[in-house]
Write a protein that binds this DNA or RNA. Sequence first.
DNA 1: GTCACTGGGTCG
DNA 2: CGACCCAGTGAC
Length: 373
Amino acid sequence: MSEFLIQPEVYSTGRHQSLIGLLEDIWIKNNDLGKGTYYVLSGYGNYNGGVRFFSTFQRHIDEGGRVVSIFGASTSQRQTSKQLVERLLECGCIVYLVNRKNIFHSKCYGYASENEDKLIVTSGNFTSRGISNNVEAAVYLDTNFTHQIKFQWNNLETAVLTQNWDIYTPTLTDPENPAWQLLYDEHESGIGIEESQTVTMVMTLGHADTVRINADPGTKEARGSQYFWLSKNCYDFFPPLTILNSRGYKTTNQCLINLYYVDLKYVDKKTRVTFEAGNNVDFRLGTARYRNTKLAQENDLMVLSRISENNYEIRIIRKNSPKYNVLRQHAVDFIGHRGKRIGYIQNKRLEEILEIQLLKKNEFERLLSNQEH
DNA sequence: GTCACTGGGTCG
DNA sequence: CGACCCAGTGAC
């Protein structure tokens, strides 16, 4: 069924609330994995924009399918990242880069097989924000509709690729290919994040989040890893999840962040964020330092502030804290089936509510180096 | 010991 | 069956 939406959860005529939902529908829930072609046309692209789909792309291609992607790229603007393109190529995707800023600005996604042409036309780029939390519109046109208007993906593909544009095709075996110069490095220091991304995640904690925190050392309850389980909606709250699991066979996408435990006055420089892409799509934040500390109980609030690209502060707001109620109101989204709540709040507003000062980026760096000694 | 992984469970 | 929930094992 064709449908229209404006994300996130602004307006929708169908079942989906965001672009990522539509994409999951046509790609992941596709019964014909291995048949036909997946299409990505986007002006911009970054790693976390694709992280939900890499393993699907890989399987699709391994089983004989195609994935064709076309991105805008430029030496002067950060449009599409090296990390994304590398990963797509590793999966076997075909990647074209159109080198002319402001020209390749369309965002279309889709699926085509012998008798199908599914098309999503949207304002959302293939980026972590574009697919989920930016305010973007999207129309999904099913095969009935596209065939009514005589749309065919292979015609579009041919049309685009035969334009007199500056089109590059990077390959993994050719790092000297000028195509790579059109891509930016997401890990490059100093890229920083926009003001709008300096936000704080506020989440209520559930049983699984706190058992190990309240367990005594050596007991059965203390075994295993200490995590906070987050919602899948947080692709754009973390740095690119470019680290793949080294052992095991189920794909996980991870990144490491610096996490300052305010309650413990300790910075963990190897805090792992894991997206269990090939398992149960869990999103986990490793919070090992809280183990056995009894610093948090069920229904307490976890407050995780993004200070800069890789630097975060975490604090627990206990249920009996005077600030608890006002903060909890910001955890507006219900997730899971145990009444867990999650939401985001601007860092400035958090500082006002808690009457605190979050660390500035340079203060955080100083803390890091002080802890070296 | 620790924690990256595993692989179920559960409910709407 | 999707998306959090949960309880470990065994590699390191």
